[in-house]
Amino acid sequence: MTPQTRKNQITSAKKVIPYLMAGDPDLDVTKALLLEASKAGVWAVELGIPFSDPTADGPVIQKAAIRALSDRTSLSSVLSFLGTIPCSERPPVFIMTYFNLFLSLTIEEFVREAKRVGGIAGAVIPDLSFEDSKEVRKAFKASGLALVPFISPTTSLPRIKKILATADGFIYFVSLLGTTGKALTLSSTMEERVRDLCLRTKLPVCVGFGIQTPEMAQKILEFSDGVIVGSRLVQEENDPVKWGSLLRQFCEVARASAPSRHQ
């Protein structure tokens, strides 16, 4: 199932979204990882584009970015690279990176390229706040791309309502205060907040940051629609086989979970 078809479903399987760093250590490996992800049956992948100054990322992803940058990976090189893999052979992609890289292209160029390449569902831009994203949201919406919004433990209810009103793709619920890669401990407050969010939106609510094990994913999937697994998988990126088998464990847990209910 892809993000595009999800809206027509009454119930839907729980989702796994692996985050991977494009170009770590090179794009051949990235291609192997995308094929593994496709075989594992993920809902989508978040494809990170390395940025020199990743303020929302912890050490694991910072180091992956440095490795990827030494291969001169850029937003436009990754888009061209995706264009060389048939859409049917790769999962839907959300491009994830910092806003400055989109400015090196202009948003219009990005949208045009994304359409040409195909199979790109949207983007996740951690430093593009709701307030500053109006134009990007408009340009994305006009061409069927989703700008995925974040909701964090500090987001107030009035703000949640504002964000949900224009949300698209899925809701990225940030599980903890801090950066990617920090170990998460589950709490009842998080569960309540996610359950509450699920009642307020038709979009899938996916939880990310700090999910280290399939067991933890299983617990989170009891009250959410999906999990985003980042740093834990990025640690295995140099070995696509190992990466694939770890990812499959997350996907099996998701398949064994009761499906999400959405109208």
């Binding site: 430093d127 706040s129 940030v174």
Partner: peptide, 9 residues
Amino acid sequence: RFVSETLME
């Protein structure tokens, strides 16, 4: 205010 959602409030 180009920062992560966590810092906005």
